[in-house]
């Protein structure tokens, strides 16, 4: 059950020059969001930007929830200038979220690329007991976020960067490949979020190793509640709405 509600900004903390951690306290009681679900946030009362923007839940906290975002355009720039005490309109929680029981897998692997790290902390919080591994790739060391939050949950991120400034040089899939070959088992369940090209390659990788994988997708969307049909993704059962049937899909469903 989702709600349209106003929320007070508790904190809007810069983590780097262009990444922020936003803590929102809804002014009404809302359903507790599941990992992988998202909220539509209205960044301004004006009509430009017009539409709400979708943001995945980074973490649920006392009194509300957190959003981890990168300033990429006009709306996120406006959002980054908001101060504690400001109120914004929000809609959610929306979407399906990650299925939490991946059957027949001994080990759980979280895979994040870039801002794909955002929903992974909420998921790690939820399934910490399964001692998941986190493979985390970014362009460069300065773009790696919330490493200590994962460490606090007992997860030591296995890092790769495109430029080699932290962890292994190369893609997150290179790291996964060498891990899987050394582990000698493919009995893994995998959750992933990241840029489309990464998810597409990861999907092929998982198919090759027969790994069950669930991936949180991102698409431009207007309404977030299933009516505009703007956010569709091609699946083996035709177009599906990222906002409603997703944002989490089995990697086998998606036609990349």
């Amino acid at each position: 059950m989702s709600e349209i509600f106003r929320a007070k900004i508790k904190e809007n903390r810069p983590l780097t020059n262009h990444h922020y951690l936003l803590t929102l306290h809804p002014l009404i009681n809302i359903a507790l969001p599941n990992p992988g679900q998202f909220f539509m946030l209205s960044v301004d009362e004006s009509l430009d930007p017009l539409l709400k923007r979708p943001f995945s839940v980074h973490r649920t906290v006392e009194g509300g929830f957190q959003i981890l975002y990168r300033v990429v355009g006009k709306a996120t720039k406006i959002l980054s200038a908001k101060s504690p005490g400001d109120e914004i309109e929000a809609l959610g929680p929306l979407g399906n979220g990650f299925p939490l029981n991946i059957s027949n897998s001994e080990n759980v692997i979280l895979t994040a690329g870039g801002m794909g790290i955002a929903p992974m902390l909420a998921l790690a919080d939820k399934i910490a007991g399964l001692k998941p591994l986190l493979f985390y790739g970014a362009r460069t060391a300065g773009e790696l976020l919330c490493l200590d939050d994962f460490r606090d949950s007992g997860i030591e991120p296995i890092i790769s960067t495109d430029d080699g400034t932290c962890g292994r040089k190369g893609s997150v899939i290179d790291s996964l490949e060498s891990y899987i070959s050394s582990a000698g088992s493919n009995n893994f369940g995998l959750y992933a979020c990241g840029p489309k090209p990464m998810l597409s390659s990861l999907s092929k990788f998982c198919a090759k190793h027969e790994i069950t994988a669930y991936m949180a997708l991102e698409e431009s969307m207007a309404c977030g509640i299933g009516t505009c049909l703007g956010c569709v993704v091609k699946t083996n059962e035709g177009y599906k709405r990222v906002c409603k049937e997703g944002p989490v899909f089995s990697s086998r469903e998606i036609i990349w």
């Binding site: 009509l47 430009d48 930007p49 017009l50 539409l51 698409e219 431009s220 969307m221 207007a222 505009c228 049909l229 703007g230 956010c231 569709v232 993704v233 091609k234 177009y239």
Partner: peptide, 13 residues
């Protein structure tokens, strides 16, 4: 897709 894009005070679909 992509099927929608926001434009100033509007959207294209």
């Amino acid at each position: 897709p992509p099927r929608i894009v926001e434009t100033p005070a509007g959207m294209l679909n």
